[in-house]
Design a binder for these strands. Structure first.
Lengths: 212, 212
DNA sequence: TTTGTAAGCAAGCAGGTACTTGCATACACG
DNA sequence: CGTGTATGCAAGTACCTGCTTGCTTACAAA
């Protein structure tokens, strides 16, 4: 056996990162072992000795990037929905943008390489759950309307984020400016779920007492 | 030369359709000329004689499918936004679902095969324009709020449609039931752009006169 | 010093891939 | 009938791809 910080690990890391880059550029079939080896500055044989096969290597790449990615959280006790959501959407946009190449290739290869499915789906699922439970909390706190279609609204915001990340590089002119995107999506979303503008917990309390 | 309905055309069509199927399954690199020839029930040589090269063939496939696809229209004079939008979204969902495999592969190959870009983008662009101008008409008719972020709202609905088509096969459980999807997206969208429920031209006139 | 281990290097193998060539067949039109 | 055209078939070329083998070098621990 070998220790965790043995020289092998150096090669291993370098190969993994190189493979990720090459795969992001060319997809599975385009990511030849020769290309990866060159990109890693490593002999092609080392690659097979370390990972066994091209398939195993690229699977390792995916699980590696999968475990590194941590879904960002929304506050348990909502205070300022607009600010909190804008920050959350912004963070997701940033992370997803860096993973776009990997995502777009895995999605197109799910049919032929089922092990790619987990990577392509999991993040989206988590984001969905996180957002959904946050909206429920908003409703419980009286910050969002009670009669909205929570599931669909959530899908629409998540789709908007994904759509931005996936589509902007191809059709840049239809999207809101990149630095405003998060804010814009959230503003529209808030209207959709019945949150008035600039309505924080404090403002909400005032308004509620005025109404009743 | 040859007439348009010469025997060649038969082969040509068969090859084009077979190529579309194989490409939809396996992507560019996976769509080998052998596979396509077998799928078309045609000798591989015929394929090269007719299209010259694999690249040219698959480019022909894309432009073929591109010209066949006609973007569905929204009415010039909006009467019942909910119904009109639901029908439009539904039609788009249906068409896009059939094109999903082609779309997902072209998007992942845009970097390496720029001619795929047009196919991957154009439809989305058209849908966007169509929806945008419709919303503007809604506003002009007093059927939608005036203070909304039209561009962003439109992006969000279009993204939701794309997201549904792309994501549902992979993460089916987060989306609204397929037969309700169009209606649900539109309901949420209407709220986002300030259209009250069941507000048609007639109802709108009544309400407006009541207010003023 | 001995031994084990990670890595490089050169060569090769078996199969696949895009594409070509030469030749045979079938059919349509004059 | 003869001629052109579309297609099939067999074979081959040049290259690429994943993967293997045999051998060498360098270093590190016992």
């Amino acid at each position: 056996m070998f220790a965790l910080d043995s020289p092998t690990m150096i090669s291993r890391e370098r190969i993994l990162e190189a493979a990720a880059r090459v795969y992001a550029k060319h997809g599975f079939r385009g990511a030849t072992t020769r290309l990866i080896a060159i990109e890693a500055g490593v002999n092609e044989v080392t690659l097979f000795r370390t990972f066994g096969s091209k398939g195993a290597l690229l699977e390792a790449v995916l699980t590696h990037n999968d475990t590194q990615f941590e879904i960002s959280k929304l506050p348990l006790r909502p205070v300022d929905p607009a600010a909190e959501l804008t920050s959350w959407v912004g963070r997701n946009l940033d992370t997803l943008r860096t993973m776009r190449p990997l995502l777009v290739h895995t999605t197109s290869e799910v049919d032929e390489r089922p092990e790619a499915a987990k990577f392509a789906c999991e993040g989206r699922h988590h984001a969905h759950d996180e957002l959904r439970s946050y909206i429920t909390r908003l409703q419980a706190a009286g910050l969002a309307a009670a009669d909205i279609d929570v599931g669909t609204s959530v899908v629409m915001l998540v789709s908007s984020v994904m759509g931005d990340v996936m589509g902007r590089p191809m059709v840049p002119d239809v999207y809101p400016p990149m630095d405003e995107a998060a804010m814009r999506y959230v503003q529209c979303f808030l209207r959709m779920i019945g949150v008035q503008k600039n309505k924080s917990i404090a403002a909400n309390k005032k308004q509620r007492s005025r109404i009743t």
